[in-house]
C-alpha cells in the first residue's frame, strides 16, 4: 500500500478555506471543517477529485457538540432540544460529512480505540485496496479539544497537550508517484516494561533504520522516546499525534531527508502498535 499525499489542518475558530461547494460548511462543526480541509488538501495534492472509500479515526470524537448537547440536556429539563449538536455528536460525523461533499458512495468507516483508531483505519483501507487494487481511498484522523477535557486531564494528572488536529492521507494499492510505502501495521495488547519494544521490533523482519516513539506510558521503558528523529512534531492531541508524525516522516521522505525504513511506535494503557513506512 502506498501513500500518495498527506495534508494537515489545524482546528481554529477562524474559517478554513478549501475547495468545497459554496455554503457547505455553514452547518459544520470545527472538527468537521478541519477533517474536510485536511481531506480536500490531500486529494488536491494527489490530483484526484473522488475517492472510493473513507476510513477515519478519532479518539474522543466530536467533543464540542457532545458537551453542548449534555449542557442543553441539563439546562432544558424536559423541553425539546435543538437536534443539531446531537446529529453532530456521533463519531462518524466527519466521515459522513466527507461522503456527502464528495458524493463518495464507497465504504465509510470510523474507528476509535484509545490511540489506535488510525492503525485500524489503515488496516481497513488495506483490506479494501486488496479487493479493489485500482481504488484510491482516504484515511484520516481528527480530534478536538475542549476546556473540560483539559480540566479532566489535569485532575487525573495525565498528559494534557492542548491542540487540535486533522491529518489526512490518500492511499492506493500500488502505482507511480507514491511518497512512501506502508509496509506493516502492527496492533496488539500492550506489554509492560521493555517487553513492548522487543515485541514490536521482533515481529519486523529486516533492519529498521529509524524509530520514533510517538506515545508511551508515563515513565516509558524499553525504548528511547525518539532514537534519531528528535525534531519530529510531538505536539497535538494524543489521538492524532501518530497521524501528524506519520505525515511529517512522509514529508521528510519526499524531500529525501529520510531514507530507509521508519517505525512509528505507540504504547497506550491497553494496546501497542506500530506503523512501518519506507520510501517507494
Amino acid at each position: 500500500m502506498i501513500v500518495r499525499a498527506t495534508s494537515r489542518s489545524g482546528i481554529t475558530d477562524g474559517a478554513i478555506t478549501f475547495n468545497m461547494p459554496a455554503g457547505a460548511d455553514r452547518r459544520m462543526a470545527r472538527i468537521q471543517r478541519a477533517a474536510c480541509a485536511a481531506a480536500y488538501g490531500a486529494m488536491s495534492k494527489a490530483g484526484i477529485t473522488r475517492v472510493d472509500g473513507i476510513f477515519s479515526a478519532t479518539t474522543l470524537g466530536c467533543l464540542e457538540d457532545t458537551e453542548r448537547f449534555l449542557a442543553e440536556m441539563g439546562a432544558q429539563q424536559g423541553s425539546l432540544l435543538s437536534p443539531l449538536p446531537f446529529m453532530r455528536s456521533t463519531h462518524n460525523t466527519m466521515a459522513g460529512q466527507l461522503a456527502l461533499l464528495l458524493k463518495a458512495q464507497g465504504p465509510n468507516l470510523t474507528f476509535s480505540q484509545e490511540l489506535f483508531g488510525l492503525h485500524a483505519a489503515v488496516i481497513h483501507a488495506r483490506l479494501h485496496l486488496r479487493e479493489h487494487p485500482g481504488d484510491a481511498v482516504l484515511a484520516f484522523a481528527a480530534d478536538e479539544h475542549t476546556p473540560l477535557l483539559s480540566w479532566i486531564a489535569g485532575q487525573l494528572g495525565s498528559e494534557a497537550i492542548p491542540g487540535e488536529d486533522a491529518e489526512a492521507f490518500v492511499l492506493r494499492a500500488t502505482g507511480e508517484n507514491g511518497i512512501a510505502r506502508i509496509e506493516r501495521i502492527l496492533l496488539g495488547e500492550a506489554k509492560a516494561g521493555a517487553a513492548w519494544w522487543t515485541d514490536l521490533c521482533g515481529s519486523i523482519p529486516g533492519s529498521i533504520d529509524h524509530t520514533i516513539v510517538v506515545n508511551d506510558l508515563p515513565g516509558g521503558g524499553g525504548a528511547p522516546r525518539t532514537l534519531d528523529l528528535d525534531e519530529a512534531p510531538m505536539d497535538g492531541p494524543m489521538g492524532t499525534r501518530t497521524a501528524r508524525v506519520l505525515a511529517w516522516v512522509l514529508g521528510r521522505m519526499q524531500e529525501g531527508a529520510i531514507n530507509g525504513r521508519v517505525l512509528l511506535a505507540d504504547r497506550g494503557t491497553d494496546q501497542q502498535g506500530g506503523i512501518l513506512v519506507a520510501p517507494c
Binding site: T110, F111, S112, Q113, H119
Partner: peptide, 27 residues
C-alpha cells in the same frame, strides 16, 4: 469508561485476547 472503545477493552480482557482489537462507530 466514556470512550466508545472502553467496552471493547473489557471484552478483550475477559477473553485474554492479545490480538488486534478495535471499535467501529458508524451510528
Amino acid at each position: 469508561e466514556h470512550p466508545v472503545g472502553s467496552h471493547t477493552t473489557h471484552v478483550a480482557r475477559m477473553l485474554g485476547s492479545r490480538a488486534l482489537r478495535t471499535t467501529i462507530s458508524t451510528a
